[in-house]
Design a protein around this nucleic acid. Structure first.
Lengths: 341, 341
DNA sequence: GTGTGCGGTGTAAACAGTTACAGTTGCCTC
DNA sequence: GAGGCAACTGTAACTGTTTACACCGCACAC
């Protein structure tokens, strides 16, 4: 396989291995003539650097572990952006998705530990048992959390303000004349970011002097079918809410389907809004009003933060909450444009 | 950091490092009592295996390189499945996406080479300049191609039959009474799998005695906007085709949008079908008829093939074409159920 | 002429495992 | 009792690169 080593190059170039090493990593400290000779030899004999040996010798690796708890296209955008930053710094990425399987997750983290990763990017973490992550952190491996922020801790993270995003949306709906606003949201789940969205909904109502009516709220984890069912329930109420705020675009699409199947129109009979700005939400029918989540930006800033932490170990934790933006499309409209019932 | 090494464990357990190594990798050859003692020591002193050192010493790494040319959710499904298989064999994955940027791609492949990856999974490759991949292959690193198969070569791949999928769909449409079937497809692009879809379309027409009418065909790369534009053009024809076969779901959704905006109905004025069975295509309006691509299965079988190739080096190339399946939803209907014009 | 500093280079130990090979022991067979 | 074998374990060389440290030669200051 890769037979040519640094020793061969050194011999052929008539220098020591140290000089060859320097020629690769700190070229400015070697004499221009020597540098050129060494580089020439490397080209000629097809030398390929052995990064494993390098990592081993350096006693630290240039690998970034990325742990993804679940994948959506938005997450993929984060990962791509993060990858770009990492590549620019010559760090390859070991990526693993656990799909919320704790066993798989432990296994992957174990691997990261064994490989002595230079840092970790953890996307969408939500569970409480951080044991292995704690262990990794204790070994001095810098970790940056994405999407899911553990507020109040010393951890570095780049997240976004779910509560604020939801607040802004509901606030906007109220300004459009909606007063009885329903909500489909897993408010009782363990997923912090979903709970936060519910809190934003509550706060917006309160801020506008509207009493929270729990009969207009349905808990549902984020699937199309759940959204549909929840919406059916809401439509079956004696006086159903005419405007529904969903905790995700998938839920919203389920809700839209329920409305359409019942022979009603979105937005003229029911307004429906989502959260995430998934890549399909512009293309569904009607195009979905939603809250855009800055997936790509999180990935980029998250990895940049990680690079900082790797560079100077004693750096203070980096904590960032990005802002979300309302994306208004045709699935909602001012209350006065809706059909009278 | 990870201070405890195999030497410490050996000393504390009163054995040699060789035995500790064996206890980890080939436990069946060490005496049960010794095994237990060693494992006990490892637990007690928090020993963490150093995989970099292991890889280095073993002169081959346990890392699989995965090169992804572009990402869709379907690709993500492939990667997840592949990862599962790899994890079961204790291989971590280094993943990189190039987004069709040749420079980035070279950089990533270089990294794979330097790290001495055990094997490579290459997803969606389509360009001709395989130089770095060739180099990797020449160094004896087994490579398996996914999605995009280079037929006629000695390369291993797991793909699916694009031509057959497209053929089946068009054939079905003909059986439903459609005769003038339009096509939106980048038939002139460099992407083999897209060209194949066009060939399937042509062959199906031919098999049913329908002459190919190029005026009903529009070339378009796979974006929503392109699909919309192409459909507009087709609708502007003196006698537009009432049934349109698109090379991807995204194109199909663009086409549907064009139809809807023009005040027509899908499927009663125009039937539209896609290809891919993207995860949103069940939720758009109307739900899209399409050809399902076995993303997850490809990932799984592809990685299994790679494991085989890694295990016995002289294994013959593994070449598989999976079949696609028609997914029929509401975006098409029998010709006789359509509005008369 | 001595001292100082600097640019450029070499020496050699260290990194943490793996594994070919060589025992050692105990048991079984003839 | 010798020989053979199997089960288990130890010895030590080896992997390719990094880097602390030392060194050399030269320029310049005093």
């Amino acid at each position: 396989m890769g037979k040519v080593t640094i020793v061969d190059v050194a011999r052929l170039a008539g220098v020591s291995t140290a000089t060859v090493s320097r020629a690769m990593h700190t070229p400015h400290v070697v004499h221009p003539a020597t540098l050129e000779r060494v580089q020439g030899v490397m080209r000629e004999c097809g030398y390929v650097y052995n990064a494993t040996a390098g990592d081993f010798s350096r006693r630290r690796s240039s690998i970034i572990g990325v742990l993804i708890l679940s994948t959506t296209t938005k997450v993929a955008a984060s990962v791509s952006a993060a990858q770009e930053v990492a590549t620019a710094h010559h760090f390859p990425l070991i990526i693993s998705t656990s799909g919320f399987d704790p066993l798989l997750e432990r296994k992957h983290l174990q691997q990261f530990l064994q490989r002595g990763v230079a840092g970790m990017l953890i996307i969408g973490y939500l569970r409480e048992n951080l044991s292995v992550i704690k262990e990794i952190q204790q070994r001095g491996v810098p970790c940056v959390f994405l999407w899911e922020a553990l507020r109040g801790s010393e951890d570095s993270y780049v997240g976004f303000d779910n509560e604020q995003g939801s607040f802004a949306m509901v606030n906007f709906l109220v300004s459009q004349g909606h007063a009885r606003i329903g909500c489909i949201c897993g408010f009782d789940s363990g997923v912090t970011r979903i709970r936060k969205r519910f809190e934003g909904y509550c706060r917006a109502l309160q801020a506008n002097g509207i009493a929270l009516d729990l009969s207009l709220v349905r808990s549902a984890t984020s699937t199309f079918a759940n959204g549909k069912n929840a919406m059916r329930e809401l439509m079956a109420l004696p006086e159903p809410p005419r405007c529904i705020c969903c905790a995700s675009d998938v839920l919203a699409m389920g809700a839209v389907a329920a409305v359409t199947e019942a022979g009603y129109s979105v937005p003229h009979d029911f307004c429906v809004v989502g959260f995430d700005n998934s890549d399909f939400s512009a293309y569904v029918c009607p195009p979905l009003s939603t809250v855009d989540v800055p997936g790509e930006k999180m990935g980029r800033l998250g990895m940049q933060a990680l690079m900082q932490l790797i560079r100077d170990e004693k750096h203070a934790p980096i904590q960032k909450d990005l802002s979300t933006t309302l994306v208004l499309r045709q699935s909602c409209c001012p209350a006065h444009q809706m059909n009278k019932w």
